[in-house]
Design a protein around this nucleic acid. Structure first.
Lengths: 351, 351
DNA sequence: TGCGCATTTCAAACCGGTTTGGAGTGATCC
DNA sequence: GGATCACTCCAAACCGGTTTGAAATGCGCA
């Protein structure tokens, strides 16, 4: 059932029918009612392709999701981010278009989103150091919001971010206050913006307390459970293993816990661990008594805010960049305690 | 840059330009080259909205992802499924449209996909007992592929599924062979099709060995880490706790492991656990020596197959339903062992 | 009755592509 | 030389909506 057929059935022009359904003031209340009733009766729905061709609005938002080409891994926090964003899109009548793209093809994907005209705006995920995408999108002129920031860009753009630096600064200071002196940071891939900021916060806190960041152990990699596990085993082989570990997500945190147990060490006693908790729906850290001491910020909430910001950017017509900084809470859980008097000893040989 | 402008710049008709770019035989090789060169030079890309309006093809596939309205939870296996499917879409020139929809709004979402004409086909996720969606989509006549099956539907439709029944039948039999006699099944939501089949496989294996399914403990819920943890604590409070637990995903499996440790029990010795391993990229169970004994089938692979099947369904023009059954491997890991001689005793009080 | 004005409706153009049904050109054949 | 044919190319219609500019209608008032 097309609009023209509907019009014919009603003995009206397509113009009038279109206006009646879209609430324009030029059509009388009586005919509007009649048209609406007929539309309902016939189950008429406007064809989005035609409408968006005519209006120039796609009513869709694009997400380009980078996938590590080595591991074919999709960062699990995207699921929650997208679920938050999707909710906001739905309530504003937007569709969500997702492109899963290997790291190296990303720019082409943005190019295509623009030229094909299939979206009104774009969410940029996982910015890295030296990221070209922001510059590219600014040139293109399509509205976009970055989840995170590109540290080295001096251009103004819209973003929603968590205060990674302060979160890890606070977490590190907390561990120092507990008496810890030997640290390890099991971070995300080292050129990811969030990883850079977290490391900066970590190092700043150390330096403020007269400790040397150079003495610490650093890992960077994709945040799998295995990665947390293997990195921890490697740490425990050191002559002087750290007594405190910070890590960028709950998932490697679980791997850390597993490795500690394999080594016969007790989490929160022999080794303290602080994770960043994205508040993933399927991995709750616990509210009453969290498993892990954590810096917590809901990535689903970030998704909602980024989506709302982008829709505002599109619909307000005001292209002035907006920014929104979220602060993480530092919540106390069972994975931290005072630094042990002696260096922790492995009781069993890790396999 | 539109096709008409390009045509004008080349002193050709839009028809010829369109045909040249789309490889129709009616245009000479010389002009095709000329047109292609000009298109590249001007950076011309056809507007997808216009093209799909003209061709009637949206070049997009829709996914309706149900989100539990209670917990706002998005099933984490979707991330990997989608990442597999997205790869196939990209290589065939399709976009992926995702609607995050609360459970109760699902049918409306399908209705809209159809009427708005924004997709050429649909992937149906997470079928349940008594699911109306398949019937609805058949009536609508839009191509679709179900990830899983709807147990009680007698209509023919296309699906890609894992042999849940056989996987859990084999896993249960394996535990019985190890001497276990008291079991618990920590399953997904009980009206989910996969949960029904897994339970059926579990119960069939018990009955074949003269054991009574009614004596077992059953849990059904959303597969979070917390859920696995809390269910296990509850099991351990029984007068005669089970010596073997089967669960539907690695995530509750991790919670089970945590609960066992809190109770001072050893995984694989005091209590054996078999999980279903979706082979999630961020939660590898391990290849050489898996953490958990598991039934393994890659959900990312299922995504690829479902996507390929749907594209074939759309492009071949042959609407005959296709089906594809994947078998899970049963892989031996560190979480199973012979049934203990005595019932396991809690050494410490779980908090 | 005739004029002005507001209200309601419509025909036609448009968005940017694809596709149908010819038309023009040159070569081939009788 | 004229008919036939293959090869290129084109004008115009079409997909299904929105939007512009104008026409028809109804009403009040002189």
């Amino acid at each position: 059932m097309t609009l023209k057929e509907l019009a014919k059935a009603l003995n009206l022009s397509p113009t009038t029918v279109s206006r009646a359904l879209n609430g324009f003031p030029e059509v009388s209340e009586a005919t509007r009612k009649k048209v609406q009733a007929a539309a309902d009766a016939y189950g008429y729905r406007p064809n989005m392709r035609a409408r968006s061709l005519a209006t120039g609005r796609a009513m869709a938002i694009g997400h380009v999701i980078p996938v590590s080409s080595e591991h074919e891994m999709m960062n699990p926090v995207f699921a929650d981010f997208i679920s938050g964003a999707g909710e906001v899109y739905a309530s504003h009548g937007y569709d969500m278009l997702i492109s899963i793209v290997p790291d190296e093809d990303q720019e082409r994907a943005y190019e295509e989103f623009r030229t094909k005209g299939s979206v009104d705006g774009i969410i940029v995920h996982a910015p890295r150091a030296g990221d070209q995408r922001i510059h590219l999108l600014k040139q293109v002129g399509i509205p976009f919001v970055v989840h995170g920031r590109a540290s080295d860009s001096d251009e103004a753009y819209s973003w929603v971010d968590m205060n990674n630096l302060r979160a890890f600064h606070r977490a590190t200071k907390f561990l120092i206050d507990l008496g810890h002196r030997r640290f390890a940071l099991i971070n995300g891939l080292e050129d990811m913006d969030f990883a850079i900021r977290r490391r900066a916060g970590f190092e700043a806190a150390l330096e403020e307390h007269g400790l040397s960041p150079g003495d610490c152990s650093y890992f960077s990699g994709e945040m799998t459970e295995q990665y947390g596990h293997d990195s921890t085993l490697e740490l425990l082989r050191l002559a002087e293993p750290p007594t405190a570990i910070l890590t960028s997500s709950m998932i490697p945190g679980i791997g850390i816990r597993r490795a500690l147990r394999e080594a016969g060490l007790t989490l929160g006693k022999d080794v303290s661990v602080i994770i960043h908790d994205d508040d993933l729906s399927y991995l709750p850290n616990g509210r009453e008594e969290p498993q892990f001491t954590a810096t917590r910020a809901s990535v689903r909430d970030a998704g909602k805010r980024a989506a709302a910001m982008l829709i505002d950017l599109i619909e307000s017509g005001n292209p002035a960049p907006r920014t929104e900084m979220m602060e993480a809470e530092l919540i106390l859980g069972a994975s931290t305690g005072p630094a042990p008097a002696h260096k922790p000893m492995r009781q069993t040989e890790p396999s």
